[in-house]
Write a protein that binds this DNA or RNA. Structure first.
Lengths: 197, 197
DNA sequence: TCTTGTATACCGACTAGTGAATGTACACAA
DNA sequence: TTGTGTACATTCACTAGTCGGTATACAAGA
């Protein structure tokens, strides 16, 4: 049983990532992933139990890099939390304009697997989204904003809405509009200044 | 060439609607749709040029009923626009709790076809979403709210975010949270009372 | 006789997954 | 140094079935 850090396993996941994200999990055959990885399907099935297992592994491998990218955009922006969050949306709008952008891999996979709510890949996606929401809530709380959990959830809703809307309209204005709304909601949670101090 | 109101064509679309929504367009074969409609695949191909054509027809048939349902929920609720919009979200949360609920058919189809941005079904979906946004903007404007178009777009973003998030977490709390945020954004657009009148 | 609609039967390509054999690296013994 | 056992890793060839789409025939109504 090869471990999670096995280099061949990694090569397969890299190939799967490119193909699944570009074409969608249902439109990519296991043969195609194996060929992209430069090995045979039988070898792929040595490293993964099934296609479903491979799909879950593909999303699991995206979890941390994705969170790091969001956090990087947040931290790189100067200013208050409203500007920092809006910077995430602006960066998303920028990358979403690229023709290779095909939405959020987690959400698209959940949409493709909507008929199988217990699918392991959906659980991985749910955990990723929960991680992001939790990170966001912590950032909001650390900056003293009111109702940090509610606020984080609202931002998540706007962001996932931006992903979906962008996918159907292919118009990045929706992403910017979501960022603006998020900034407004954040500013509404700035605690009143205490003149006594 | 059969017309759009042809009863056989309607039977096929009804069958396609049930299957495509329940399983996803990629997981349903043309054979399965034909069988559900009680006819052969060859007959289906007499009425529709291709599976892609059938997918677009399926979404097109959902456009008006979907808008009418939203408008019905909006109109049935007593109170101001904030309460009326929140009622849409509450009704969505209610139906989304049903195990047969599988998200928004338009968004799910767009996610499945993300690799084909020009696909006719995506254009149909984009038009439907634009229709909804436009209706919402009119309702907001008719009630004298400020920035009705921006407001409508923000509500749409929250709603599509609710659809996506619900699909991955299967937790209707997200839909209610989106409804609450929408109500807050609406109230922030109530024009200041003019004491002089 | 021409048009509309339906059915049977089929095509070639592709699908996820597997059986059986082969190759390879390394440990350990002679 | 050489031989051998073993577990890991990989390949080829295959199964059994599904896919979207079509060639052909036929039946009924105008």
């Amino acid at each position: 049983m090869p471990d999670a850090l096995n280099p061949t396993r990694k090569r397969i996941i890299d190939a799967a990532t490119k193909l699944f994200y570009a074409e969608g999990i249902g439109r990519v055959s296991v043969d195609a992933v194996a060929e992209k990885a430069g090995l045979t399907k039988r070898t792929l099935y040595y490293h993964f139990q099934s296609k479903d297992d491979l799909i879950a592994a593909y999303l699991d491998a995206r979890d941390q890099p994705n969170l790091k990218q969001m956090a990087g955009w947040f931290e790189s922006e100067e200013g208050g939390p409203d500007r920092k969050v809006q910077a995430i949306f602006s960066n998303l709008a920028r990358v979403a304009r690229h023709p290779k952008w095909k939405g959020c891999g987690f959400l698209r996979t959940a949409a493709e697997l909507a008929a199988m709510p217990g699918h392991p890949a959906i659980k991985v996606g749910a955990r990723h989204k929960a991680n992001f929401e939790s990170w966001l809530a912590d950032e909001m709380a650390n900056r003293g904003l009111l109702e940090p959990k509610t606020l984080a959830r609202e931002i998540v809703l706007l962001m996932d809405g931006a992903f979906s809307t962008m996918l159907i309209h292919r118009n990045a204005d929706y992403v910017e509009a979501a960022g603006h709304a998020a900034a407004v909601l954040i500013r509404s949670r700035v605690p009143p200044a205490d003149a006594a101090n």
